[in-house]
Design a protein around this nucleic acid. Sequence first.
DNA 1: CTTGACTCTGTAGCTGACTACAGGGTTTAC
DNA 2: GTAAACCCTGTAGTCAGCTACAGAGTCAAG
Lengths: 169, 169
Amino acid sequence: MLKTAKQFGRQVEGRTLRIGEVAEATGISVEALRFYERRGLLGRPARTPSGYRAYNESVLERLAFIKRAQAVGFSLDEIGEILEMHGRGEAPCLEVRAAARRKLDELDARLRELRRYRNELARTLADWDERGIEEGQFCGLIEHSHVHAPATAATHAPARKQTNQGKRK
Amino acid sequence: MLKTAKQFGRQVEGRTLRIGEVAEATGISVEALRFYERRGLLGRPARTPSGYRAYNESVLERLAFIKRAQAVGFSLDEIGEILEMHGRGEAPCLEVRAAARRKLDELDARLRELRRYRNELARTLADWDERGIEEGQFCGLIEHSHVHAPATAATHAPARKQTNQGKRK
DNA sequence: CTTGACTCTGTAGCTGACTACAGGGTTTAC
DNA sequence: GTAAACCCTGTAGTCAGCTACAGAGTCAAG
């Protein structure tokens, strides 16, 4: 763990990592790392005389944070803000805690929604299994569904809210 | 319900709807309707002599199906395939049922994942509440997390798998 | 001293599900 | 008969989070 710096001029502190090494260590692609940097998530790393990025190992920790925060539902922008606040030593925790609480609520709402859809789908499938399906138009997905209301705007509104499915992290 | 067709030339069967009426009835925007048509989800509707789309009321049912399928996790492409099979009278139900079952599995996996993140976040929050946070670097989101492993590639891999989250239909 | 792997910047493209516009024609209500 | 409200096509833009490339420089090994 205390290997000297490989070839790069100054071995200021510990070992520095090239971008490819960071990529390999974290499973995040080189392009994504540069992308994060552009988005302000990684600051500007030191450079070797020839312009290569020379990360020190703390970047791994930072990236771990980013990944964890992302997994928990923060967008890159939000993560950027948190890191920035942290960097400026600005009582980040109050803000961050509030944000985290909001995230938790969102996550709960999303879970309820998904559970509803799951059960709906499961019921439809069960229906299909126990009776023939030849009668229905769209294989029962409409006719046999036991769920909230017919084709009115009211039915669609809640679905719309969640059309952005993918984008919600 | 048996109003004669309004102004349009032929009043072939029942009432026909202009795109704006369909939009209002379903809560789907006019642009989205045209978009669905381009994507092959609605076929080519009849046209008035002047080129306006003249939908018959069955489109509402079809749109309801689309919305429901979407809510349950099918992408527009998948929905398109289902509708196409249906249109060709091709034993769709076997295919559809298999697809639905896959969807259900995916939904379950997604739910497990989200529950995991939810609990993780909730635990982190609870931690913050019971002890001061001033010590931690990133407000404990790393240090205090009780979860799977430190900053190694192994930690990231599962997260990566799910970086494409959004894209997962 | 050359080959190949790595890195750099900058820009463009991808996915999914739309939305927004420009620049027209059509209908309807007054 | 005219203005508002609707409709048409076609193209481009949006969001997030990347990915892919082009064209160039750098580094380690044989």
